[in-house]
């Protein structure tokens, strides 16, 4: 019986069905097909696309050169300033919200939950409209541009950041608090010295995501109108689009966002590996 099985005659030809019987061979065939589709798509695009037209619309070197240095010295700087203002306020308010969510006083928990559910559910655009246009119209007060951006970005950001910080605090093991309390630390001292520093290490990656989201949301400041010196990246790109009738400035502005966000991710990964020793 066994000898009959092992003495199976060699297959005369490896037919397709024979080839697909082994899972490993099947995987190899599927991978080959995927490469073939990719190459075919690239070839088709290269043949069909009108490269001259694309270059004129997106990659006009003269138009691109004309955007400098203002796209960096004005627009990029404004985007960074708006983002940092919103993030700083959002972080402070988010920390308060997180501590409220974890409070032993029930009404604080309710208030924080209501706030978070409210602002997390609203489009940032609507908040910008409400604060930038609504408040001045309704109350007849003039709000400084930076105040509006700080409030609008911060109020929305705080809802997300608050939830992130709460999750981070809850991820610190109970034993850490017990150890701190057993050394005579008060509850507040233990939270400040032991829990929050550890929580911030845990939430560094999601917090970076919030920062990147706020960077992009800062483009909503275009709603407020702007003098030339107040333009941030999106608005800068939009204005130049009108001036040059070319998509190139938009592409340049887009690349400037990446100048902010890509190094940010890099820095955070560095920070994480630096603190790896201490977890």
């Amino acid at each position: 019986m066994t000898s009959a099985g092992s003495a199976r005659p060699a297959a005369p030809r490896a037919g397709l069905r024979e080839l697909l019987r082994s899972p490993r061979r099947r995987a190899r065939v599927i991978r080959g097909v995927q490469y073939a589709v990719l190459v075919a798509a690239l070839v088709a695009i290269a043949l069909v696309a009108d490269w001259g037209e694309i270059r004129r619309a997106f990659l006009d070197p003269e138009v691109a050169a004309a955007q400098f240095p203002d796209v960096l010295t004005v627009a990029l700087v404004n985007t960074v300033v708006y983002t940092l203002l919103g993030f700083t306020f959002g972080l402070a308010l988010g920390l308060v919200l997180a501590l409220m969510r974890l409070s032993s006083v029930a009404p604080y928990r309710w208030l924080a939950t209501i706030y978070i559910e409210f602002f997390r559910g609203l489009p940032a655009l609507l908040v910008f409209i409400a604060i930038g246009n609504g408040i001045p119209l309704a109350f007849g007060v003039f709000l400084n541009r930076y105040v509006v951006v700080t409030l609008a970005l911060g109020l929305v950001g705080a809802a997300y950041i608050g939830e992130t910080i709460r999750a981070g605090i809850q991820a610190v093991p109970r034993g850490q608090v017990e150890a701190a309390r057993s050394l005579g630390m008060s509850a507040g001292r233990a939270t400040l010295t032991i829990v929050i520093p550890q929580a911030f290490r845990i939430i560094l990656p999601p917090l970076t995501n919030e920062l990147i989201m706020l960077t992009k949301d800062s483009s909503l400041a275009y709603l407020l109108g702007a003098t030339i010196a107040e333009r941030e990246l999106a608005q800068f790109g939009r204005a130049a689009l009108n001036d040059y009738r070319s998509l190139t400035p938009v592409l340049v502005a887009g690349l400037c966002y990446l100048i902010i966000t890509v190094p940010l991710g890099f820095v955070v990964r560095r920070l994480e590996s630096r603190t790896a020793r201490s977890r």
Binding site: G175, Q176, E178, A180, I194, P197, Q198, R201, S278
Partner: peptide, 9 residues
């Protein structure tokens, strides 16, 4: 404690 509970940071 059984599980040490040192402060890792």
């Amino acid at each position: 404690f059984q599980s040490f509970n040192l402060f890792p940071h």
